[in-house]
């Protein structure tokens, strides 16, 4: 069960090579739906990070007690419990931010990425590794959300974290609801382009 993956590797894998948004293309709904500002991305990212880490650790601790036949229901129950917790906490202590994120906090329960990590990683690996893996995936999601939020907020309202940075009148289009699709699509294409470029330059050197 023990393996030689270091914590840094697990984290960087979540953020870069297996980024849940840009690479695995899972949990796209909030990436398109509420990524109008960096702040929204950050807050939902934190919520997902919390749920992912806690669920991963919980499942990893109890992995030998979970009957294989009721694997999926147990995962769902675990995730739903932690989502309820974060939902109640956010509603109580950060009511304004909670109102902005609307239904999406509750919908974390249906994020494919979390179930997938539980099934593929936490149910097999040690508690320690599961923690780092959950942290990596959660951070990857948060970084992805914040990047999209950054682009949309900068171009759409000319601000970052609510502070004006652009001197000119921004393009309203980028904060309109439908622009989320375009921004995510273009950014995916951009990352693909970098990857192709990188591979090609590597190939030339060799």
């Amino acid at each position: 069960m023990a393996n030689d993956k270091s914590s840094m590797q697990l984290i960087s894998r979540g953020i870069l090579s297996e980024n849940p948004i840009f690479k695995l293309a899972l949990s796209m709904c909030p990436a398109v739906g509420i990524s109008t500002t960096v702040m929204n991305g950050l807050l939902l990212g934190i919520a997902v990070l919390f749920v992912q880490v806690f669920s991963s650790v919980t499942i990893s601790i109890f992995k030998n007690l979970i009957h294989p036949r009721i694997r999926i229901p147990t995962y769902t129950l675990t995730i739903a419990t932690w989502v309820t917790v974060i939902d109640l906490v956010l509603a109580a202590y950060l009511p304004e931010a909670y109102a902005k994120m609307g239904i999406f906090v509750k919908l974390i329960v249906a994020f494919a990425i979390i179930t997938m990590r539980l099934e593929m990683f936490a149910s097999k690996e040690s508690v320690n590794d599961s923690f780092w893996d959950g942290l990596g995936m959660g951070l990857g999601f948060m970084v992805g959300m914040m990047t999209i939020g950054f682009v949309r907020e900068l171009l759409g309202s000319g601000a970052i974290f609510g502070y004006d940075v652009l001197g000119f009148k921004p393009l309203l289009f980028f904060i309109l609801p439908s622009a989320g699709f375009f921004v995510v699509g273009l950014m995916m294409a951009f990352f693909n382009w970098i990857e192709i470029f990188y591979k090609r330059s590597k190939g030339l050197k060799r």
């Binding site: 419990t81 917790v85 109640l88 906490v89 509603a91 109580a92 009511p95």
Partner: peptide, 12 residues
């Protein structure tokens, strides 16, 4: 969930 609800409902 119950414990969490008890703690947060008053704060909310």
């Amino acid at each position: 969930m119950g414990v969490c609800f008890i703690f947060t409902s008053n704060a909310k």
